[in-house]
Design a protein around this nucleic acid. Structure first.
Length: 615
RNA sequence: GGAGGCGUAGCUCAGCUGGAUAGAGCAUCGCCCUUCUAAGGCGACGGUCACAGGUUCGAAUCCUGUCGCCUUCACCA
């Protein structure tokens, strides 16, 4: 049982007996390190129920706890804060009973209901860039966190595989491509297609310039440029199912999927279900008709269909064009409904999409509610801030993007440079080394992105490389590797509970202070301050997972792990572990180290980061 | 103009449902490898929590207003 819950009850009892008052909850917080104690009751918060001097009240409650709660050894009161010391036996007991499982803090899914987490959702006309990297890492990590918190998860994406932007790259390839393929050029498919998307824009701009030279106004030139007209025709042909167009479309899309596959693999993300816009927009149209029938939507004279959200404080929103074709909203309505049809156990959905689309999702969720879907109550837009460069926003068309593949390769290179300089990898084969460089490089990248609160904007300066020291992925990986080194060197059996009776003799001689009743709290042994801080930080892992799930925030896991590693490093630097003379303490410290390593590994799995045995 | 987000040390960020003297890392300057990996540890320096009011025993946190940056309000996605 959690220490807070335990004390919660005791404090309630105390207030009842001492002051004859019922309280709902007592406020606890971790004791600040400059005071003695493990956990602190904020007495101020009780003043609502009990009138009086907070110091006096605190003292009375403190006395009561020491007398009636076996785990409380002593207390002190500073202003309105009651600092409570908890018996070492409690910390140790928890260590041996609650922590041993290899999935400590993870909750098993108790029901079959699932959450669908959507992320990535790229357009199929250009390669993935740094913005997608943040999206993918966030979505993947949040999915893992929700799973760990005890709910089933289905990871998915919507692939934006149709529309004018796709036709642009198709047309440019047809026109200027000379039959190039990924095989013939050795280029990744998404890169090849992306090049033609850029090529289109270049040629299109040339045409506009020409038209302007011939005296046509810019706005008109943009609409009249032959390339654009041709792309629009191509879209119409595609929608009409023209065989050659559809064939080109599927060939080029396949190139892109193959390219994305490589990038996703390198990034370490995956999906359980894929949705394609080209397949769901029709269902969206169906429900627009239904919404029309049930008066959720209305039709204007020109035939376009709208949803009036002015009574909800929003604007009117178009859901179908006057020519009957679908808009973005149409397909999102269709996709959502399709997903619930396919997965009846899904009762909530998370959309990982940038914050520039906040309004879109507000409207989407509202429309789905108006259409009468119960699950529409449980939709969440995991909105994250943009990743900007020093010179501003990334623009694919203008080629000012940080390419995902390039970035990952660069991180690996940096890891290689640092590792080679340190030269600690004697005995590793080239293959093992390369694997390790990837682990470290990706660890640095992922941690760098995930440690910041999702809703905050990230400014990324390509010239200033991502750090490998301090609050970083490699710092935490390094601690893991050091612990593994200790465990490899530990040539004694550390698999048993040092508190077991077989060893009580040794332990008795080192029993804790006289406040503890040895009949009730046996097997007490003195804990070093640093050991205790590590134990306390370990015990908070389950709460961190729940909090991270509640807030959809991998940053909470990242920061938890950083704090854990910091207290462990202090411990590591302060006390000997393998060099410890007392066998019991040596065993305990080894076990404690192992548990820290296990927890780092679990926490990093939630972030999609792997840990190395050496580095 | 309407709506939303952000603003904490020179830089990058923590700060959970309001709680004690606002914390880390980087950078700068000192220490610590004949103990288990120095990608580490210890210390120093560094703050008007954008600003002004309000609520409260108590505000970086909640409310209101002002300023600054960003996003959005398309028959684009």
């Amino acid at each position: 049982m959690n220490i807070k819950d335990l004390l919660q009850n005791s404090v309630k009892k105390a207030v009842k007996q001492l002051f004859d008052k019922e309280i709902e909850t007592a406020d606890f917080q971790a004791t600040r390190k400059e005071f003695e104690g493990d956990i602190t009751l904020v007495v101020f918060s009780l003043l609502r129920y009990v009138k009086g001097n907070p110091v006096q009240i605190g003292t009375q409650i403190g006395d009561f706890l020491v007398e009636n709660e076996k785990l409380v050894t002593k207390y002190n009161v500073v202003k309105g804060f009651l600092n409570i010391s908890i018996a070492n036996s409690y910390h140790l007991d928890e260590f041996y009973t609650a922590f041993p499982s290899t999935d400590f803090g993870f909750q098993k899914a108790e029901s079959d209901t699932a959450t669908m987490v959507e992320y990535s959702s790229p357009n199929t006309n250009k390669p993935l860039h740094l913005g997608h990297v943040r999206n993918n890492l966030l979505g993947y990590s949040v999915a893992e966190i929700i799973k760990a918190a005890g709910k089933k998860v289905i990871k998915t994406q919507i692939i934006n595989d149709r529309g004018i932007h796709i036709c642009k790259s198709m047309l440019a390839w047809q026109r200027f491509g000379n039959g190039e393929t990924p095989e013939s050029t050795g280029l990744k498919g998404d890169k090849l297609v992306g090049n033609y998307y850029v090529k289109f824009d270049k040629e299109y701009k040339k045409e506009i310039a020409n038209l302007k030279d011939n005296g046509i106004a810019e706005a008109d030139a943009k609409k009249q440029a032959p390339l654009l007209l041709e792309a629009q025709q191509m879209l119409q042909k595609w929608e009409a199912g023209d065989e050659a167009t559809v064939k080109l479309w599927s060939t080029m899309n396949q190139w892109v999927y193959d390219g994305f596959g490589i990038t996703y693999k390198a990034m370490g993300v995956d999906f359980d279900a894929l949705y394609y816009e080209s397949k769901t927009y029709l269902l969206g149209k169906e429900f627009v008709s239904e919404g029309l029938a049930s008066d959720v939507f209305y039709k204007k004279e020109d035939g376009s269909v709208w949803c009036d959200l002015t009574t909800d404080g929003l604007d009117e929103k178009i859901v179908l064009r006057s020519d009957g074709t679908a808009v973005y909203m149409t397909q999102d309505i269709g996709t959502a409904i399709q997903r619930i049809k396919d997965y009846p156990n899904v009762n909530s959905m998370v959309y990982t999409v940038g914050n520039e689309q906040d309004y879109h999702f507000k409207v989407l969720f509202l429309i789905l509610k108006k259409l009468g879907f119960e699950w529409a109550e449980n939709l969440f837009h995991l909105s994250y801030g943009m990743v900007d460069l020093p010179e501003g926003k990334m623009k694919s068309r203008e080629g000012t993007v940080v390419d995902a593949d390039d970035l990952m390769a660069e991180m690996t290179n940096t890891a290689r440079d640092i590792s080679e300089e340190l030269g600690k990898l004697d005995g590793y084969s080239t293959k093992e080394k390369e694997r390790l460089y990837k682990t470290i490089g990706m660890g640095a990248l992922k941690y760098y992105i995930l440690k910041v609160d999702p809703k905050k904007r990230i400014l990324f300066d390509p010239k200033e490389s991502i750090d490998f020291n301090g609050n970083t992925g490699p710092f935490i990986q390094y601690t893991y590797a050091r612990i593994q080194s200790i465990l490899r060197k530990a040539d004694f059996d550390y698999s048993f509970n040092v508190l077991d009776s077989a060893r009580t003799d040794t332990l008795k001689t080192r029993s804790d202070n006289g406040n503890v009743n040895s009949n009730e709290v046996k097997n007490v042994f003195e804990l070093h301050d640093k050991e205790k801080s590590v134990l306390k930080q370990l015990a908070e892992f389950p709460d961190a997972i729940q909090l991270a799930a509640k807030n959809y925030s991998p940053a909470i896991i990242a920061n938890y792990t950083y704090d854990l590693v910091k207290v462990y490093n202090t411990f590591y630097q302060t006390v000997p572990i393998l060099g410890c003379e007392d066998l019991d303490i040596k065993i305990f410290r080894t076990q404690l180290s192992q548990k820290v390593a296990d927890t780092i590994k679990l926490a990093f799995e939630l972030l999609g980061i792997s840990v190395p045995e050496r580095m």
